[in-house]
Amino acid sequence: MHKTAQVIMAMLLIVLVGGGAYGCYRYWISQSSQADAPVGNVAALWQATLNDVSGKAYPLAQFQGKPAIINFWATWCEPCRDEMPEISALAKAHPEIVVLGLAIDEAQAVHEFTTTTPVSYPLLIAENEGMALLEALGDQKGVLPYTVILSADGKLLHTFFGRVTRQMLEKALHLTP
């Protein structure tokens, strides 16, 4: 009888440990699948020319050659607005990194937003071009927020669906805070 109890206990333990291990495995897979080089056509990005709220044109080619964070957002997207102060703080602390906010939105709405919530990096209007750029960079469904991390040699290092934190971005760029 003593043995029976031990066997039952052992089996329950195995189920629990197994379940835990499976959970960790799933988590690890989800992490590593993002670490696997994401596919995307970065060239499309550098070819674009976008305006800021004041109408000034920015040919994106000028940002090539540096590590970059490209953050797609919109004023109507709550998680996007939520993450922007953290991205802004990161951009301020690391001037050697290019940080761009591409708004899938109207210039007027972006202008209103920046007066209440200024950020330390350029916000460019991609109302018409944005969806094509999102698709080229791996966000086929066009969901926001979407953040792309590029290496200095223009490789797609990491992509994030949904809200990012400063920590996640720093880790993706191998920065020490």
Binding site: A74, W76, C77, E78, P79, C80, I104, M131, K141, G142, V143, L144, P145, F161, G162, R163
Partner: peptide, 13 residues
Amino acid sequence: YQGCSEKGLCYPP
């Protein structure tokens, strides 16, 4: 129309 997911993602209009 335009909406979002509770997972913290929004869909374009």
